[in-house]
């Protein structure tokens, strides 16, 4: 028998598989398809203070091995998430969840974390800082080490649960941002968010996505994600949740060897709704293939 358990800041998961934010809603859509309790956990849709409709459509484009999304953090807002979505989720999920949070100002992140911190179902906060900072002329929090530091510090002050900061790969030196959030007290790091990309419709000569550009993800970005996780593992001493293009148990093993303690699966759920389930079920077989008894032994094994 292999042991697939991993531990994130004191929270032990049955296995490291966590469907990624934005690809798993608030869970119950998938609970109609399979028992989502077989997952390690899952990260819910990025939640903001106010309800958001998000960006205009079309929001979706495609490449042979990936996709672009420009959803723009559509969500019902924190109060509706707490009063409507989480109660629905509790009916089909008896584990703790990763609470993904989005915001456009430091105070917004703080207010959401304060509210979610009281919810028993929240295992850890995953703070998505790949959003424009409205107080700094729209400059992305996640591309500026000082802003990333400031958000982390502020959120840590009000959180009793672990705070993981989710980094964007759209920077020159991801390790320096990782170091900044570690210094500010982050309990862990999630990465990577989507890469900025675009597509053009050659017939109309116009961008396919209404917002012109969007977040590129899916199996095509796996190698970039792996590199980022590897670099961040070298730079910090806090646990990493690795993601980006993961589509198989083989990818999970590789991501963990690069330095991830747990692994999120994003776009793959959209093309294969049973994708995360299949990865969980295939993991023991792949562990045996590489003679791994204790999955946590391989974390950072490539360093």
């Amino acid at each position: 028998m292999v042991d697939t358990r991993v531990t994130l800041s004191g929270w032990t998961l049955d296995n490291p598989i966590i469907p990624a934010s934005g690809t798993f809603g608030y869970g119950y859509e998938y609970a109609e398809l399979y028992d989502i309790n077989i997952l390690g956990s899952f990260s819910f849709k990025g939640t903001t203070l106010e309800p958001r409709f998000g960006n205009p459509t079309p929001r979706i484009a495609e490449t042979p091995n990936g996709m672009i999304n420009s959803v723009g953090l559509q969500n019902p807002g924190i109060d509706a998430v707490i009063s409507e979505e989480l109660p629905k989720l509790r009916k089909c999920f008896n584990k703790k969840v990763v609470a993904n949070i989005g915001g456009f100002a430091v105070e917004e992140f703080v207010k959401i974390v304060e509210k979610l911190d009281k919810e028993d179902i929240v295992g850890l906060h995953e703070v998505n800082i790949s959003c424009p900072n409205l107080h700094k002329g729209g400059k992305n929090f996640g591309t500026d080490a000082d802003a990333a530091y400031e958000v982390t510090k502020a959120v840590k002050k009000v959180a009793t649960k672990p705070v993981y900061i989710k980094l964007t790969p759209n920077v020159t030196d991801i390790a320096s941002i990782a170091k900044a959030v570690e210094e500010a007290g982050a309990d862990g790091i999630s990465l990577i968010n989507t890469l900025l990309g675009m597509r053009i419709n050659k017939r109309t000569r116009k961008p396919v996505i209404a917002n012109k550009m969007g977040g590129f993800s899916g199996s095509a970005i796996f190698l970039v994600a792996l590199r980022c996780v590897y670099q961040v593992y070298e730079a910090v001493n806090i646990p990493i949740i690795g993601m980006g293009g993961v589509s198989s148990a083989e990818d999970v093993i590789e991501m963990m060897m690069a330095g991830a303690t747990a692994v999120e699966v994003g776009a793959y759920n959209l093309v294969n709704p049973y994708g995360s389930k299949e990865i969980v079920e295939d993991l023991p077989r792949v562990m045996e293939k590489y003679r791994i008894e204790q999955l946590s032994d391989i974390i950072g094994g490539a360093h």
């Binding site: 859509e29 409709f53 959209l270």
Partner: peptide
Amino acid sequence: EERMGCGFGACMGCSCKTKYGNKRICK
């Protein structure tokens, strides 16, 4: 019609506004 990511309600790729609130074309 709308361009879809998942087609089963999980990604919010296909949203539209209606008089009865936001809806997903796919679901």
